[in-house]
Design a protein around this nucleic acid. Structure first.
Length: 266
DNA sequence: CGCATTTGACCGGCGC
DNA sequence: GCGCCGGTCAAATGCG
C-alpha cells in the first residue's frame, strides 16, 4: 500500500481536461461528459452495466444499437457473448453486493490449486471506451497489475487483463486493440475503485471528479494530450495528438455518450 | 529482494 | 451433451 499515494509520475496537472458538461443518464444506462479544451472537443461514448436497476430490455436494445452505430466491430461468431446485450440477464444475474466476491469469482481450479467452490462469477458495473493510442495501457491514475493475457477470437491482438493493485480494490480492466482499427485501444473497466487514485497522476486525466460523477467515470483514462501548459513526460500513453478519444465502444453493448474535449487552461 | 509480467492450464458459461 | 471461448489462477521468470 505504500505505493498508494506515492509515485507514478509527475504531479498532476490540474488541468488537462476539465469537465464542462455534466453527466447524463445516471446509473441506468449510460451518460455523457463534456470536456472542453477550449479548442477541441471530443465526444466519447461510454457505457456500463449495472446489475441492478437495469432498465427495460428495450433500453438496452436501443443502446446496443448505438454500439454498432459507432462502429463497433461487427459481431462475428461469439462476439455477442461479450457484447452480451442479449445476455444481460445472466450477466447481471449476480449481485454486486459482495465486492469481495470478485476475487472469489474465480472458478475452481486444479485439484492442486485451491479454488473456492462453486462461486458464481460476479460481474460488476462495467465501463468501456475506445481510445486512440499507440500504447495499450492508458494511464488512469491507478496502479494495475496484469494477471493474464488471452488471444481473442476475431482479433489478431491479445487481450490483457489487469487488476487494481490495491488489495481492497476489486476493480479490473481489460485492454485490447480493435481488430478493425489497430490504432484503437478498447479498455473495459469492471467494478468501482474503493480508494483514491494510487498515483500522483491526474485523476482521470485531470477530470475533476465530483460526487455527482458516477464512479465509472473515474475510469476515464488520463487523456493525456499534454495539457497546453502541462509538461508531461514523453512516456505519455496517448501519443496521438489528434484524436485521443474516439467513439467509445463497450463490449457490454451498453453505451452512453461522453463528450470530451481537452480543456486548455491558459 | 520485492514486485510486476509472462505463460500455460484450468474452469465455467454459452452456443450448437 | 459436446466443444469453443473467455476469464482467472498461479508458478516461473524478468526487471528495477
Amino acid at each position: 500500500m505504500s505505493d498508494e499515494d506515492t509515485d507514478l509520475g509527475p504531479a498532476p496537472s490540474e488541468s488537462s481536461w476539465s469537465l464542462v458538461g455534466g453527466f447524463e443518464g445516471g446509473c441506468d444506462g449510460g451518460g455523457a461528459y463534456f470536456f472542453d479544451d477550449g479548442e477541441k472537443s471530443i465526444l466519447t461514448e461510454f457505457g456500463w452495466n449495472i446489475q441492478s436497476d437495469l432498465p427495460d430490455p428495450a433500453s438496452f436494445d436501443e443502446v446496443g444499437s448505438s454500439t454498432s452505430a459507432i462502429g463497433l466491430p461487427p459481431p462475428d461468431r461469439r462476439v455477442r457473448e461479450d457484447a452480451s446485450i442479449p445476455n444481460l440477464p445472466s450477466v447481471s444475474s449476480s449481485s454486486v453486493e459482495d465486492p469481495a466476491a470478485d476475487s472469489v469469482g474465480k472458478h475452481l481450479q486444479t485439484p492442486g490449486k485451491e479454488r473456492k467452490g462453486a462461486q458464481k462469477r460476479i460481474r460488476q458495473a462495467r465501463f468501456a471506451f475506445r481510445t486512440k493510442s499507440e500504447v495499450d495501457q492508458l494511464e488512469d491514475g491507478y496502479r494495475w497489475r496484469k494477471y493474464g493475457q488471452k488471444a481473442v477470437k476475431n482479433s489478431p491482438f491479445p487481450r490483457s487483463y489487469y487488476r487494481c493493485t490495491n488489495n481492497k480494490c476489486t476493480v479490473k480492466k481489460r485492454v485490447e486493440r480493435s481488430s478493425e482499427d489497430p490504432s484503437t485501444v478498447i479498455t473495459t473497466y469492471e467494478g468501482q475503485h474503493c480508494h483514491h487514485t494510487s498515483s500522483a497522476f491526474p485523476r482521470a486525466g485531470g477530470i475533476p471528479l465530483s460526487p455527482h460523477v458516477p464512479a465509472t467515470t473515474q475510469f476515464l483514462p488520463q487523456l493525456h494530450r499534454g495539457a497546453p501548459h502541462e509538461v508531461h513526460p514523453p512516456t505519455l500513453l496517448n501519443n496521438n495528438d489528434e484524436d485521443h478519444e474516439a467513439p467509445v465502444a463497450t463490449d457490454e453493448g451498453l453505451l452512453g455518450d461522453i463528450l470530451v474535449s481537452p480543456h486548455k487552461r491558459s
